[in-house]
Write a protein that binds this DNA or RNA. Sequence first.
DNA 1: ATTCTATATTAGTATATTCTAATATACAAA
DNA 2: TTTGTATATTAGAATATACTAATATAGAAT
Lengths: 94, 94
Amino acid sequence: MKTIQIEKSAQCIKAIAHPFRLSILALLAEGEKNVQELTRALGTSQSNVSQHLFQMRARALVTTRREGNMIYYTITNPKMLKLMALMKEVFCGE
Amino acid sequence: MKTIQIEKSAQCIKAIAHPFRLSILALLAEGEKNVQELTRALGTSQSNVSQHLFQMRARALVTTRREGNMIYYTITNPKMLKLMALMKEVFCGE
DNA sequence: ATTCTATATTAGTATATTCTAATATACAAA
DNA sequence: TTTGTATATTAGAATATACTAATATAGAAT
């Protein structure tokens, strides 16, 4: 595996290496959600959620869509769902 | 996904969220290696490599075997290889 | 234009991570 | 038993991350 791929992968992995960010992905796996919905589900501050979302947006792991004054987030790459399922299997046993 | 699984997954993901640790996994994917071999390949200090290995050992992602005064490391779960391939695909495109 | 609501950004602090340098441990060889 | 080699551990400094509180922005509604 090339150095550049290692670096990029490490950045993306870091972007999902937090319980809140994993939870956000698990919620988005059900379908798109706006920031309010995510904030309520996580039980932390809106600011904190926005900051976590920023990290995943910066790596293009999630994508946004505006509707009125709400921003809806979705998982960019559908293969992410497969990846999450496999991580669960490898890290938590089956 | 349950909170406990989220927590455990986040811990494991953190344990691989570093270029050196990903490189180590990529090297171990080729077969078991001892600390010297990994140290030479990474081009950092032996102490640093041991510290990175510790993090993955603590999460049982890698397993050790002693031979004389060398310690050989292997990837614990063969499914990790599938996971790494999928991460590369999702994070680096195909 | 003002106000309201949703989201983003900033500043500052607390905590965690990473690295280097030094030291400890464990086995092998002499 | 001393010496050498491989690996692990510790301490401390530098950097990065995560959180709270406050503020900014952008669009909607009045």
